[in-house]
């Protein structure tokens, strides 16, 4: 099942961002990734803002998965 595989991948990638295993990603967590990813802090902030749905300052696993799903072209969590 592609969706299950997708969600599993999303979960793994989420954990790469949520190093402290808080269960959510903040803008600060995102900006810390600049040492590991070839993106600027501005780009990481832009990614955060485009993934975040409700503008509460936290990126949840659901929001993250939806963003990845949209990127890959698979509809998740309808």
């Amino acid at each position: 099942d592609v969706q299950v595989e997708m969600l599993e991948k999303a979960r793994e990638l989420f954990q790469l961002c949520d190093k402290e295993e808080k269960g959510f990603i903040t803008k600060l967590d995102m900006q810390r990734l600049q040492s590991e990813l070839p993106l600027t802090p501005e780009q990481l902030e832009a990614v955060f803002e485009s993934l975040e749905q409700d503008n509460n300052g936290y990126l949840t696993p659901v929001e993250f998965s939806m963003g990845l799903g949209k990127f890959i072209g698979i509809e998740l969590y309808q």
Binding site: K9, L37, L44, E49
Partner: peptide, 29 residues
């Protein structure tokens, strides 16, 4: 205008982000 900024994000940066994460994931055992 924050909306313009968000629009400028576009898929390029997101693609870069996810691709980098994916290659990082597969790069480590």
């Amino acid at each position: 205008d924050p909306n313009m900024k968000a629009g400028a994000t576009s898929e390029g940066v997101l693609a870069n982000f996810f691709n980098s994460l994916l290659s990082k994931k597969t790069g480590s055992p």
